[in-house]
């Protein structure tokens, strides 16, 4: 089946099987910033924005994106560039595998709640796992980014 979807502002037509998940479609279509980590909606490295809201692309059928907008980190380069400066300052990136998804979640959080508490930041990002950093450096980097420090 064919799906019409806007990816990073561009209209695309994807030829898919009804059971295809968005993660696999995007990687097949060369959106390689979207990573594969767990196949079952837990780790968050496949996070993309669906109509501006973070979702796990491994758990959304591509068929459901018909007429919707999908944003990968390729679509928020300016924001990711800036956020990465804050991550770099805290040594919060390490292996980097989770950071594109993290950037998207942080971007969405900023849009939704420009002044979140520490608890709200943690809550919003619980679905983005990281095995390298121990989280605290990321948390500081994200807070500084949101406060534009």
């Amino acid at each position: 089946m064919k799906v019409n979807v806007k990816v990073n502002g561009q209209n695309k037509v994807f030829n898919i099987e009804p059971g295809d998940y968005l993660l696999d479609t995007l990687r097949k279509e060369n959106y390689l910033s979207v990573k594969k980590g767990c196949d079952n909606s837990s780790c968050g490295v496949c996070t993309v924005l669906f109509d501006g809201k973070p979702i796990k692309s491994c758990s959304l059928l591509t068929a459901k994106t018909e007429g919707h907008e999908v944003t990968t980190v390729e679509g928020i380069q300016k924001e990711a560039d800036k956020l990465s400066d804050y991550f770099g300052a805290e040594g919060a990136d390490q292996c980097g595998y989770c950071t594109p998804g993290m950037a998207l979640s942080v971007h969405a959080l900023k849009e939704e709640n420009s002044n979140p508490s520490d608890e709200e930041i943690k809550e919003y990002l619980t679905g983005n796992l990281c095995r390298c950093t121990g989280y605290q450096s990321q948390h500081i980097a994200i807070r500084n980014y949101l406060e534009d420090k």
Binding site: D81, F87, A89, G91, D93, A103
Partner: peptide, 17 residues
């Protein structure tokens, strides 16, 4: 505390893995 040489490119999603 210098930023890592690869962190930015990886967060920006450059194919690397």
């Amino acid at each position: 505390a210098l930023p890592s040489v690869d962190g930015k490119g990886l967060m920006m999603g450059r194919p690397a893995y």
